[in-house]
Amino acid sequence: MRTEDKAKFAELVTGMAEIYGREVTAASLRLWWATLGDHSLDDVDHALRAHVRDPESGQWMPKPADVIRRLEGSARDQEADLEAQAVSAWGKALEALRNTGPYQDCPIEDPRALAAIEDQGGWQSFCMMETRQLTWARKQFIDAYKCMEAPGTPRSKLGIHSSQNVRQIGEARSAGESLPKLGGAA
């Protein structure tokens, strides 16, 4: 929030406190402001209204931590979201495996998914997995996905064709030859 939001913020907090039959002191209002000041006034207003409408938690006046939980979500909510993202990324990785295979470059753009594939030996190794390995690979992928920061593109995103092309270019350059035609181009 900005300094010019203080009056509206004070009105919002004191109005909410009146609903619960409470008074807000200047000291507690300063604490509310210091605690929630990193959020926009609209977001705080929305979170307070959501709290008041909630049949369970809305029975009591919220504390700043209750408002922050509504604004940012609880750690448990964030973990569940990350788990859902990881499961979705696994599904997309399997779809890419079926549609692309090891000869083409990995089409996945999600940096965490790429890092999880890298953790399993890279795209080519990932594509060469046997069906019986998928259950364990899924668990490893999801665990790796959840632990990864979003890094840059891993080096093993290349499929077999691109790896061979890169090797051929390097060999041709070192031999002083003209570059070969790549990717089966005539």
Rank of each mutant, 00 (worst) to 15 (best):
R2W: 07
T3F: 12
E4R: 14
E4G: 08
D5C: 12
A7L: 11
A7N: 07
A7E: 13
F9S: 05
A10L: 07
A10T: 10
V13Y: 02
G15P: 04
A17R: 08
E18I: 08
G21E: 14
G21P: 05
A26W: 06
A26K: 14
A27Y: 05
S28Y: 03
R30E: 15
R30Y: 09
T35E: 11
L36R: 03
G37M: 06
D38F: 03
H39R: 13
S40E: 13
D43I: 00
D43M: 02
V44Y: 01
A47Q: 02
L48C: 14
R49K: 14
A50N: 11
V52Q: 10
D54L: 11
E56F: 06
G58S: 09
G58E: 04
G58H: 06
W60P: 00
K63E: 10
K63T: 11
P64F: 10
V67Y: 00
R69V: 09
R70I: 07
R70V: 03
E72D: 14
G73R: 04
G73M: 09
A75M: 13
A80G: 02
L82N: 05
L82P: 00
A84D: 14
A86F: 05
A89R: 01
K92L: 12
K92D: 12
K92C: 02
L94Y: 03
L94I: 13
E95S: 14
R98V: 10
T100M: 01
T100Y: 06
D105N: 15
D105I: 03
C106K: 00
C106R: 00
E109R: 15
P111Y: 02
A115Y: 03
I117E: 02
I117P: 00
E118L: 02
D119L: 07
D119R: 12
Q124H: 02
F126P: 01
C127W: 01
C127A: 08
M128E: 15
M129I: 11
M129T: 10
M129G: 04
Q133A: 13
L134W: 03
T135K: 07
K139H: 14
A144E: 04
K146M: 15
A150C: 06
G152V: 06
T153L: 11
P154L: 03
S156I: 00
K157Y: 12
K157A: 03
L158I: 07
I160A: 05
I160F: 04
R167D: 10
Q168K: 13
I169M: 10
G170A: 12
E171A: 10
A172I: 03
R173P: 00
S174D: 14
S174T: 14
A175H: 11
A175E: 15
A175I: 04
A175Y: 05
L179V: 01
L182N: 05
L182H: 07
G183P: 00
